[in-house]
Amino acid sequence: MQLFPCPFCGPRSESEFHFGGEAGNRRPEGFRAVTDGEWAAYLHERDNRRGPASEIWMHMTCGEVFRMERDTVHHGAVRSFALIEGGGDDGLAH
């Protein structure tokens, strides 16, 4: 069992969490002005970095959505940040 840190609840089993995607992958704004290329990039193109990664996760039991810094090589969960406290990589929840 691996422990992930929920910014509110503290350390909990990884099985209580759900992956929400790479942090900073913002939905393109502009409705009809958004090109199909931009939309496809938003849906499908990922950085998928080797090593330190910044990701959005949800703690299913409390409903908290947060950003977590995790390493994709050794899988260590380094730190988590509450979006409500400005913990997104640009201070926004997205």
């Binding site: 509110f8 609840c9 503290g10 350390p11 089993s13 099985s15 299913m60 409390c62």
Partner: peptide, 20 residues
């Protein structure tokens, strides 16, 4: 549960027998 009984945290919602 998988919660640490000596450091359970501020939130009483947790997985108990796999159920929230």
């Amino acid at each position: 549960t998988t919660v640490d009984p000596d450091d359970p945290g501020p939130c009483a919602a947790l997985r108990f027998f796999g159920l929230t």
